[in-house]
Computed example of a mutant assay.
Amino acid sequence: MSEPRTERFDTRTQFQQELRSLLARARGTLDLFDPDFALFTLGTPETESELRRFLHNGGTLRLAMHESGWLERNAPRFLRLLRDYNHRIECRVTPRGLRQLTDSFAIADALHVVRRFHSDHLRGAAAFDAPDQADLPRERFNVIWAESLPGLHPTVTGL
């Protein structure tokens, strides 16, 4: 493990750059939470390629969200990835009681985290090789995950 590194960001470009860096470092687990994933570039060729590498090498991806509509309408590459690797990807939708949660974060291997403090804003921080920085978001994700229900499916019928 390298020395811990923390970077602050406040632009879309910086956020997406830190997110790409997190995806490139991911080896075993990726846990992502966002209200709709509109800023996560899950539908771009670069992200699809990185996620395909991650999943092909045995990684597991969990997404928790309030609404899946944005991904369904705007991320056909991600939906194809979901079909191809549905045994390694699970998506859940939060119940009404959790819809007030407004932060957004991605955690890789319980070591790296990229977090926006509020999903309506781009201000946030990324921490790499910093398990202590990933602990709180990881615990938060596990609580959200436990309360959420299966959501986005590989096909329209959910099969």
Rank of each mutant, 00 (worst) to 15 (best):
G43V: 11
L23T: 03
R62K: 15
A38F: 12
L61Y: 09
L79C: 14
R80Y: 08
F40Q: 15
L39N: 13
R83C: 10
L79D: 12
L22Q: 13
L71Y: 05
R53T: 08
T41G: 14
E46S: 12
D34N: 11
R27T: 00
A64M: 04
L32G: 11
T41Y: 07
V93M: 10
L42W: 13
G59N: 00
R92W: 12
P76I: 13
P45R: 15
C91M: 07
L81N: 05
G43L: 08
S49A: 14
F33L: 06
L32R: 08
E67K: 07
A75Q: 08
G58A: 01
S49T: 15
A38C: 12
L22R: 09
Y85P: 04
R27F: 01
N57G: 01
L39M: 14
T47Q: 06
S68V: 08
F54E: 01
L30S: 00
N74C: 14
G28C: 08
A75Y: 08
L22M: 10
H56F: 04
A26C: 02
S68K: 10
E48W: 05
G28S: 14
F40M: 15
Y85D: 00
F54S: 03
R62S: 05
T47V: 14
Y85V: 04
L23Q: 03
E50G: 04
R27W: 01
D36L: 02
A26R: 03
H66T: 10
R77A: 15
D31L: 11
L30V: 06
A38V: 09
R27S: 02
L63V: 08
L42A: 11
A24G: 05
P35Q: 10
T29E: 05
L23P: 01
N57E: 02
T60H: 01
E67G: 00
R27D: 04
R80F: 06
H66L: 11
N74R: 14
D31A: 09
L39V: 13
R92Y: 09
G58N: 04
R73K: 11
L81H: 06
D84R: 08
L79K: 14
A24F: 03
D84I: 01
N86W: 02
F40I: 03
G69E: 10
F54D: 03
A64N: 10
N74A: 14
L82K: 09
R52Y: 01
E90A: 15
F78V: 04
R52T: 07
T44W: 13
